[in-house]
């Protein structure tokens, strides 16, 4: 890594803007993290409104397959460098939805997760700890999930398509039915 890259990474670690994709119950832990009790702005982390502006994608809970579609679309709209934070046990192994047919179990199979925060729910301390960890990883140049995604795009795409197929209607579409009748 050249010195310029080191400099760039240092500043990137100090200014991480996040897009919180609030699914499930994890979103409730974010307001205390942002506001005066824990104040994550002191680390240069602020919430942004759209994927174009953000560096971190924060997935705060379980993802149904239909939601996963949106998450993938949002992730692909973000510009490199970008990182994904899986938040809570739902993103790790499905959590309490471990045997659900409509919910994905491992987020890492569909988009590259740089860091998980375990717990149900993780407390704000844990979230801040994760941000600190991610900051160190970024500054060392270790958080390269976005490059992994490009390199293994076929694998990710196949995984995504396999579950997306489940969202297609089981019955034939209404017009097809009328046509055949």
């Amino acid at each position: 890594m050249s010195e310029w890259d080191e400099l760039v990474n240092y500043f990137r670690g100090r200014s991480m803007w996040m897009l919180h994709y609030c699914t499930g119950c994890g979103a409730i832990e974010l307001p205390p993290t942002m506001t005066s009790r824990w104040d994550m702005e002191r680390f240069g982390i602020i919430p942004m409104a759209t994927p174009r502006q953000a560096d971190i994608l924060l997935i705060t809970g379980y993802l149904s397959i239909k939601t996963l579609k949106r998450v993938v679309y949002t992730y692909e709209q973000m510009s490199a460098p970008k990182w994904v934070l899986g938040f809570g046990s739902c993103t790790i192994n499905g959590g309490i939805y471990w045997d659900s047919y409509g919910v994905i179990q491992n987020l890492d199979k569909y988009i590259p997760v740089d860091l998980y925060i375990a717990g149900c729910m993780p407390r704000p301390e844990a979230i801040l700890d994760a941000f600190g960890k991610l900051k160190k990883m970024v500054q060392k140049g270790e958080a390269k999930g976005y490059e992994k995604y490009i390199k293994n795009y076929d694998w990710y795409k196949a995984n995504q398509d396999r579950v997306f197929r489940r969202t297609e209607p089981v019955l034939r579409k209404a017009e097809e039915v009328t046509k055949s009748a």
Partner: peptide, 16 residues
Amino acid sequence: RRYGPPFVQNFIDLFK
């Protein structure tokens, strides 16, 4: 009643 970012934070953000 927060601590707040360092006052050079905006330069860092711009550079990033």
